[in-house]
Computed example of a mutant assay.
Amino acid sequence: MTQEKIKLLVVGGPTGSGKSDLALRLAEEIDGEIVNADSMQIYRGLDIGTAKPSPQELARVPHHLIDIVSPDQDFTASDFRREASAAIDDIHRRGKKAIVVGGTGLYLRALLEGLLDSPTGDPELRRQFDAVPGEELLRRLAEVDPETAARLHPNDRVRLVRALEVYTQTGRPISAFRAEHGFSGDHYRAFKMAITVERAELYRRLEARVDRMLELGLVEEVRQLLAQGYSRELKSMRSIGYKEMTAYLAGEMTLDEAVTLIKRDSRRYAKRQMTWFGRENDIYWLEYPAAFASILGHVIEFFG
């Protein structure tokens, strides 16, 4: 007998669109619990700059995968898939409903579709490829894996290097691994939604949020992280808001310049997220808060 898939509500979309607020309201209505899918909110101590839910919001509904690693720990999409799956299974076992919320598209894809079962990275190989121009990388890849090469651009160095790395390590093209394992699906039946926001309004919200972060003490938060010994070169400290503030505290730019960069990079990040989620075929774009009653009705019907 085939095991019934766990029903899962996924709230994605760009930063600043209102995902967290929508998820909180839905969770309170349907007896749900929230699983964080934001790659920065996993870090302890990075609170203001990641727009982490407030203590009051965390008290309203149980949250999972927030504050689970220190800023100097590695945490991959594979780690997220493992931890999120365990949290969702626990929520389901207790008779609650799981709501996965976040804008990290790779995390959501890893959870819902699986990860490619290919070799881990080789730092030495990557250093060798780093010195090779993109056009040459693409030419080399076309010789050994024309299927993958046909989908890539010379500027897409990350995927080019990864594909060549896999071939060099195994003698097999990464397309072969995809054909064998693919993104293999899982035991979830997901209802995916995102909030549609007019771009100018989204950018206005993002800029206002950055100003609010400054009022809440972003500068002091970054100062404390540095004082605790966390290097500005860490992945967590190179994220938007933190890299600019470390540069300011190092005397490399003024506070106004740092704030301007944070706002610019926040807009760019939101644009990339909109592009990512816009490519998803099975995601429902909904207006919030205007259409909350309709959204709630669809969610209740889905879980019913």
Rank of each mutant, 00 (worst) to 15 (best):
T76R: 09
S20R: 02
E147N: 05
R268T: 13
A190C: 06
H92A: 09
V222K: 02
M237A: 00
R223W: 10
P55I: 13
A149E: 03
G134H: 13
E301F: 15
I66D: 01
P71N: 08
E244S: 07
T120M: 13
A290Q: 11
E135D: 07
E244A: 09
P62I: 11
S85P: 04
D211C: 06
R81F: 07
H153Q: 07
P14V: 15
G171L: 12
A270E: 03
Q41W: 13
Y288I: 00
G16D: 01
H298F: 13
E4C: 05
D79S: 13
A142L: 03
F129T: 01
R82E: 08
R267Y: 15
L22C: 03
L108P: 02
S236V: 01
D31H: 15
R264L: 12
V61I: 10
A142G: 04
L115S: 02
D265W: 11
D89W: 12
E83D: 09
E233G: 12
G217M: 07
H63D: 03
R199G: 06
R172L: 14
E83K: 14
E113V: 10
G114F: 12
I30G: 02
K97N: 09
A77Q: 02
Y107L: 05
E207P: 00
A194T: 04
I48E: 01
A87T: 06
R44N: 08
L296Y: 08
A87F: 11
D21N: 15
I262Q: 02
S184I: 10
L106W: 03
R162G: 06
S78T: 07
F303N: 03
L138G: 01
D31V: 08
G45R: 04
P133L: 14
D74A: 15
S54V: 08
D282P: 01
F277G: 05
E257S: 09
D38Y: 11
E135F: 08
D145W: 15
G171V: 09
D156P: 01
T275P: 00
L24D: 01
Q273Y: 09
P53Q: 00
K97L: 11
D130R: 13
S39W: 09
Y288C: 00
T148H: 06
K97D: 03
L225R: 02
Y188T: 05
E4R: 10
A270F: 10
G182Y: 09
S231C: 09
G185V: 14
R162D: 09
L112S: 07
I240K: 08
